Amino acid sequence: MSEARSWGRQRALCHWATPFAWLVLLLALTLGMEALEGGFRLLEPDSREIIYTRADFLVLLGRHLLMVGTAGILAIGLGVGAAIAVTRPGGRDFLPLVSQLASMGQTFPPVAVLALAVPVLGFGTVPVIVALLLYGLLPIVRNTLVGIEGIDAGVREAARGMGMTGGQILRQVELPLAAPVILAGIRTSVTINIATAAIGATVGASNLGDPIISGIVNGNTAYVVQGAVLIGLLALTVDSLFAKLMPTRG
């Protein structure tokens, strides 16, 4: 019995090894960027400042996660909710409209959304969350529609034959079966928005885009690399975490 438990713990550790490794590397660079000053000086030998110090990298990471997380939660609620609504008998007439609106949200450049939102919402975090929300809706809406619509009609009929109500069929049959496809859409949406959120630094929303924008403005390649590497590691961490959470579709 003890050997079985030990084997189970080893399997669990191996299962989460990849996201854990990316997370450790992300935190190590976030907390210890100064230790790499010698390497970054090769990129900017003539610059007085090599490591971005206008804000703590850990604080920037937290703000970046807050923006992406808030936009992601809103996009999941709106996207999944809208997709479920238009797959019900009373909402099917609105299915093309919801699909088109979600598509428009991603084809409309986030920079343009920021340009339109800033005069109304002001500078800072709010317009960035709005832009990320619109940009992240399409994969969630599309995958939720595909997941629910792809369920065999016989499965629904069997559930009705067992006396299930429409709400019970949705909660106990449709959503569990569609979960892998829905989660894949959420994974795509969140991962893309981790990179897209960097543009928020252009409108006063402090995040990991700060060193990138500062580096571009001041011609400091080291700043740009520092911000880009941290954003890339964050995206890899979150994406690998989603990969481990993905259920298999039965």
Rank of each mutant, 00 (worst) to 15 (best):
P89F: 07
I192Q: 13
I84D: 03
A21G: 10
G62S: 04
A198K: 04
E44C: 14
E34H: 12
E37A: 14
V80H: 00
L170V: 08
S214T: 13
Q100P: 01
P119C: 06
G204D: 08
A35K: 13
Y223R: 07
P19Q: 10
L97Q: 10
G91N: 09
A222F: 06
L134D: 02
I51N: 03
L236W: 06
L121H: 03
I194E: 03
G122R: 08
G91C: 11
P119Q: 09
F108R: 02
A228G: 12
F20D: 01
V98I: 15
A35I: 08
Y223S: 04
G204T: 10
A131D: 02
F94L: 15
L43N: 07
G150A: 06
T125N: 09
L13E: 12
R9E: 13
Q106N: 08
I212M: 14
V155P: 04
L61R: 00
G204M: 12
N207G: 15
M162F: 12
R9V: 10
F94W: 15
T125E: 08
V98S: 04
V229N: 06
G163F: 11
E174K: 04
T165P: 02
A35R: 14
T107R: 12
G81K: 09
L61N: 00
G38M: 05
L78V: 15
I192F: 14
A222C: 08
A35V: 11
R5F: 12
L61A: 01
S99Q: 15
A115F: 10
Q168S: 05
L230A: 05
I212F: 04
V155H: 12
G167A: 11
P89D: 12
G105I: 03
D152W: 07
V225G: 05
F123Y: 14
W7K: 15
M104F: 15
L101A: 15
A235V: 08
L170N: 02
N193Q: 13
I194C: 06
F108H: 04
D152E: 13
L95E: 13
R63A: 04
I199P: 00
T107Q: 11
F242D: 02
P139V: 10
A17H: 11
V120D: 05
Y135L: 13
L65Y: 07
I151M: 06
I50L: 11
R187A: 09
A201Q: 03
N143K: 03
L145V: 03
V130R: 00
S206V: 10
E44S: 15
M67V: 06
M33D: 00
P211Y: 03
L175Q: 09
A228T: 13
E149T: 11
A243C: 08
L145W: 00
L74N: 05
T221S: 14
C14F: 13
P247L: 04
D210I: 03
T202A: 14
